[in-house]
């Protein structure tokens, strides 16, 4: 157990160090997320009275797109540099490698979200600074990264991987999209009392899919 935690933290450290040195992921994801939010302003009127419900939708679509971009990129980089093969040769349990990649991806997406949310709030004059929103962001991103990491590894070893990842991810992630958008709308409109079922749904989804992905990852990467 202690050993696995040590291995996971080394894997995360590797991802963070690579990112600090190459700056391949974060910048692109962040600009993309903010641009999506800005573009949504022209698709729906996000300045009107109804801006809270449409705003939460725009916010999560932006996070989904940016996250998808980041996931695809992060695994593609691993593959192109041959570092995924290197990882698989290490005397480390395959499930541990999955968890390491999962936490790495989770951190990057969360970072993008944490910086984009205040910008979103400033642009559309919506008060977002509530602790419950942080919880929704965390639970939603865990589910996204748990399923996304597994599917991105699969998509990366197919032809036309840029197409394959969203096609695989969007239908399977639908519960996360619904739950996060509804929960965020409830928070932005001040109905925090009804949050319970959505948080439970997200929590259950996260646990279930982390477990399944952890178990099947070994079968996905064996070549």
């Amino acid at each position: 157990m202690k050993r696995a935690v040590g291995q996971i933290s080394i894997l995360i450290w590797k991802d963070l160090l690579t990112e600090v040195r190459t700056k391949d992921l974060f910048g692109g994801m962040f600009v993309f997320a903010v641009l999506t939010i800005v573009t949504f302003n022209f698709a729906f009127d996000l300045t009107g009275v109804n801006r809270a419900p449409s705003g939460s939708g725009a916010l999560w679509v932006a996070f989904n797109f940016a996250g998808m971009l980041g996931l695809g990129r992060s695994i593609a980089l691993e593959r192109d540099r041959g570092s995924l093969d290197g990882l698989l040769l290490c005397p480390v349990d395959r499930g541990t490698i999955y968890l390491g990649k999962f936490v790495g991806n989770f951190l990057f997406i969360t970072l993008v979200e944490v910086i984009s949310v205040p910008i979103f709030a400033a642009l559309f004059n919506i008060n977002v600074f509530q602790l419950s929103l942080l919880l929704v962001l965390l639970l939603g991103t865990v589910g996204f990264a748990a399923v996304g990491t597994l599917l991105a590894v699969m998509a990366a070893s197919t032809r036309s991987r840029e197409v394959m990842l969203p096609v695989l991810m969007f239908p399977i992630l639908l519960p996360v999209v619904i739950a996060t958008v509804r929960a965020t709308t409830l928070i932005l409109t001040g109905q925090t009392a009804d949050l319970g079922p959505w948080l439970n749904l997200l929590g259950a989804y996260d646990l279930l899919f982390l477990l399944i992905a952890y178990v099947v990852f070994e079968r996905v990467v064996e070549e």
Binding site: L174, P175, I178, L201, A204, L208
Partner: peptide, 13 residues
């Protein structure tokens, strides 16, 4: 496997 397990969760959500 994932798709089938996801179906009841999609329904519920």
């Amino acid at each position: 496997i994932i798709g089938f397990i996801d179906v009841p969760i999609i329904y519920m959500s």
